Computed example of a mutant assay.
Amino acid sequence: MKTSETEVLIVGAGPTGLVLALWLKRLGIDLRIIDKAPGPGETSRAIAVQARTLEFYRQLGIVDDALAAGIRVERLAVRTPSGIAATLKLGDFGAGLSRYAFAFALPQDIHERILIGHLEKMGVAVERRAEFVTFKQDASGVTATVTKDGTSEVIRAAYLCGADGASSTVRHGMKLGFPGGTYEQSFYVADVAVENACSGLNVCLDTHGFAIVLPVRQSGSVRLIGIVPGSHAAEETVRFEAIRAEVERLTGVVVKAANWFSTYRLHHRVAEHFCVGRVFIAGDAGHIHSPAGGQGMNTGIGDAVNLGG
């Protein structure tokens, strides 16, 4: 069995794990970062990038690349069946408090590729198809077992961090509770191409529904997030075509093509602790939220900076 050593082993190569790796490498710390997935994410998932995250990226020297790849959201509009009920300018939201005083959208798949590119420039490659199995720790370090292509490796590290998502294997190994609950409603999320232009963030409300419309890609794609209509809420599998008419009625958009669509239930949970000895968890491994305001990804990135610093 292969054995190796490093100062820090990071499990999970989403934004939280990648930012932790960038921050630690910037400080000259030897590390390895592994992920069981064969490659970075292919869907946009988290999109809102807050000003504090951009401030962290400025310290890392990567903010210009992030800004060039995303979209500044200049306006918020509240839409009802009667039309636009209210608008709010977001272009200078928080002016005087941050140099990034605006709302900003950057799809997670593009976001991750930017982080990976900068990490590779620093000489660190994400080790793919590498699955974290278990660990033991003592006073001087952590001994972790990882499998890849049917072969096991024992990695001795001074510290271990699980940034491996809501079902975190690291958190389970720490035997931590993850108390919280599940919101009652079923939600949908889609990236779609639309026939009519969409500018800014639109919040769409009526007596039976709720949806958000947000441009997320410079190519013109639009993100739709909303509550699955009641007539389909109990269905195990919901397809976009089944709810298209209701979504278009509520949002006012005309969909040409659905590039990606999924339904999900929202959870709210926080781990009992974020560390046990030399083992830490960060991001969704430690806390999961409603996606409102982009708090999940951005707090995870904050975890990474606080832990790395």
Rank of each mutant, 00 (worst) to 15 (best):
M1N: 13
T3K: 13
S4W: 08
S4K: 14
T6S: 15
T6Y: 13
V11R: 08
G17T: 09
L18Y: 04
L18R: 01
V19F: 03
L20Y: 02
W23R: 15
K25Y: 10
L27M: 12
L31G: 00
I33K: 01
P38D: 09
G41S: 12
T43E: 14
T43A: 09
S44C: 05
R45N: 02
A46R: 00
I47F: 00
L54P: 11
Y57V: 02
L60H: 14
D65V: 05
A68V: 13
G70T: 02
R72C: 14
R72W: 06
R72F: 04
L76D: 01
R79V: 02
A86G: 08
T87I: 09
L88S: 09
S98Q: 03
F104H: 03
I110K: 13
I114C: 09
I116L: 00
L119T: 02
M122L: 15
V124F: 04
A125W: 02
E127D: 14
R128M: 10
T134M: 13
Q137N: 10
S140V: 08
T143P: 11
A144N: 05
T147H: 12
K148Q: 10
D149I: 07
S152V: 10
S152W: 10
E153R: 07
G162T: 02
G162M: 00
V170E: 05
G173E: 03
K175D: 11
K175S: 14
F178P: 06
G180A: 11
G180C: 13
G180Q: 05
T182K: 12
E184D: 11
E184K: 12
F187S: 03
V189C: 12
V194T: 15
G200T: 12
N202F: 01
V203F: 00
V203L: 06
C204G: 03
F210G: 01
A211G: 01
V213R: 00
R217K: 10
L224M: 07
L224N: 02
L224F: 05
G226H: 07
V228R: 07
G230C: 08
S231I: 09
A233S: 14
E235V: 12
V238Q: 15
F240P: 08
L250S: 02
V254P: 15
A258P: 06
S262N: 08
R269N: 08
E272N: 11
F274R: 00
A282S: 08
H289K: 10
H289L: 08
Q295W: 03
Q295M: 08
N298W: 11
T299G: 03
G302V: 12
G308N: 13
G308R: 05
G309K: 04
